[in-house]
């Protein structure tokens, strides 16, 4: 399936774009999506995705629909969701 991911902050700078469409298997989990993002954007590895691609770094999180944070990476991704790759830190 194709998933649209919006990039905020450093992710946008590294990707050079505000969003991307990532293709993953129909039974893909969040873990697979993170891995696919790392494949598509190798510069994410380090600052946004852990070097072993197992998870995002502490600085970043995936938000679904502006309402929920992805916490369990083994859960399958649902099609049609609005996905946001954004800084985890708030405050200022």
């Amino acid at each position: 399936m194709k998933l649209k991911v919006e990039f905020l902050g450093l992710a946008r700078e590294l990707a050079g774009d505000a969003e991307a469409v990532v293709t993953v298997d129909d039974r893909a989990t969040w873990h697979d999506l993170i891995s696919a993002l790392a494949d598509a954007y190798p510069s994410f590895v380090g600052p946004i995705v852990l070097p072993d691609r197992s998870n995002l770094t502490a600085a970043y999180m995936l938000n679904v629909g502006g309402r929920a944070i992805v916490r369990d990476l083994d859960v399958p991704v649902q099609p049609g969701q609005r996905l946001l790759l954004m800084f985890a830190e708030a405050g200022g």
Binding site: L8, G66, G92
Partner: peptide, 15 residues
């Protein structure tokens, strides 16, 4: 990288 102004789009995205 962007400083705290990066909050604008974050906060907007989550309403």
């Amino acid at each position: 990288t962007l400083g705290t102004p990066s909050n604008v789009l974050n906060m907007n995205a989550i309403g």
